[in-house]
Amino acid sequence: MNQTRTRSISLLFQLGGLALAVLFVTIILLLVDAQPMEAFRLIWEGATGNPTRIASVFVVWVPLLLVTCGLLATFTAGLWNIGIEGQITVGAIFTTGVMRLFLDTSISPVLVIIISMLAGMLGGALWAALAGILKTFGGVNEIFGGLGLNFIATALNIGLIFGAWSRPGIASMSGTEPFPEHFWLPTFQNFRLSLWSIGFAVLGLIIIYFLLQGTHFGLRLKAVGKGMKSAFRMGIPTWQHMMLSFVICGLFAGLTGAIQVTGVYHRLIPSISSGYGFMGLMIAMLINYQAIWLAPIALFFAALNIGGIQLPIVIKLDSALTGVLQGSLVLFILIMQGIKQRFVGKK
């Protein structure tokens, strides 16, 4: 009984955070002379108004879900994998690179897609392992290492788009030459959405949930994250576990990049990671690193992203407003957790 009480108090505080975030955004809207209700209605409409929009929400949901799955592995090991953006980008670069190799061959497109996606996962894992190596052997905090690697990945991406892989004659911000349609992940009817990518996302979530909740490896990872010295003394090889968590996260990030290339953009574009990595960090904090809440919260964030597109079109508000809402949501819910600990948790 006590436990259910604690849980409902907890939920109450979370909802309080949500209310405060909405209030905060409402005040901002009032300050810029916009109609708050109209803006919220537009976001809702924008996300659910017609089947195309709903499909678009799921197109964003997939990468958000996958990167956050990966981030749960690094967060569990006590690591702040800021380098996630770079890992998505390098995943996309590897996928594009490998696919380009097979463009003019007679190998079956299905096989090419599979190989390129695996290459993308490998790329993400390598880039993540680099952050891990810098931390383990170079003493570079993963936040700084990851930040540096993000810049390098972005530079590499731009360099390829405007250099070696540029479209003949017209190198531009619109990216590389699109791949022929038979190299695309098959989409669902006429939507941009691929059932395959949904499948990957769901599978990834199931894997990460059981990995972290049910396996010995997951528990050891948690021990490393909560107390590295003690974990080592209990017989856990600590740096190896941290390295593995980086690699796992990199695999997820790489897969995300691969899906963006093969399933969404069908080419490499400069902002291929779309900031989903950073958004994943926010979602992970919001769900308090519990995989069980990941799917609905990621869906909510995806809906805000897509819904926000309507704002500039209809009422001349910048779509960044949904970003403000997402950010303030995380902040207010974290604040409420702090407040809860202060008043309820205090003994």
Partner: peptide, 10 residues
């Protein structure tokens, strides 16, 4: 104990 022996939170 809590720094090197046992893992707080577990």
């Amino acid at each position: 104990r809590l720094e090197e022996g046992l893992v707080p939170g577990l």
